[in-house]
Amino acid sequence: MIMTWWRRILIVLIGAWIPVTIIYAWWTLSAESANPYFPPLSLILERFTELWFSQEFVVTVFPSLRNFILGYALACLIGIVLGTLIGGSRTGIKYAEPIIDFVRSIPAVATVPIFIVIFGLDIAMRVASITVAATMPILIATIQGVRSADVVQVETARVFHLSKSQQLWRVRLPGALPLIFSGLQLGLQIAFIVTIASEFLGSGFGIGSFTLIATESFLILDAWTGVILMGLLGYLINVVFDIVERFTLRWYYGQKKIV
């Protein structure tokens, strides 16, 4: 069905009335607020622009983003390579499964203290905890994806004498991509959570540390701006991921539509 332009606008409007109402209610209800924990929204926004549209953004947020990107990139690399290797061999799975099962069962945030013991409050601690936590879902999804490759496609590839590496690159990995992407998305969310957690627990620098220190020193406005910024960042990385996924898996969605 082709959507007319006014239909699209209508759908956006319907989706918008609740957020608009919430923000309007927040604005008016907090305007005269004497409750120290809920300052007027106007003051929060004023402080928000003052803080995050300045040098402070670079100083506070960049270190967090750097750790996040570094840890996540490593997790993607390790998860996919290791997952392909383990998923490709039957014995590999048998030996690796109990270890993977155990590590994934530990709440990601609870592994941060372990890395603090090993690395101290270094950057290495932050990147290592992000990497290990985010690797688990990617690793598991890749193993499942490589193993559940379409039998007909694999058999066909074999009949046409494709070499082992051709089978891997042309058949198994592309077939596993949709599953791998679901692992990548979960890994992304975990990487973000652990980035913040590593700053809450081993304070020092970064947006998480900034917000926690603001809370402890009763700088309520700063705490609110920190929370709002972290929330927006958490939302934005998901939006970016969706766009990348849609672009990379165009062929897959196309295939599904045909079927």
Binding site: F192, I196, F200
Partner: peptide, 27 residues
């Protein structure tokens, strides 16, 4: 109507990791 009204709001809060609101919740 209810589904389309809540879609954006619920999706938004669904992807926001709960850890980020902890400072305010502790306060």
């Amino acid at each position: 109507f209810a589904w389309r009204s809540t879609k954006f709001t619920f999706d938004f809060f669904k992807v926001i990791p709960p850890i980020v609101i902890i400072p305010i919740v502790i306060l």
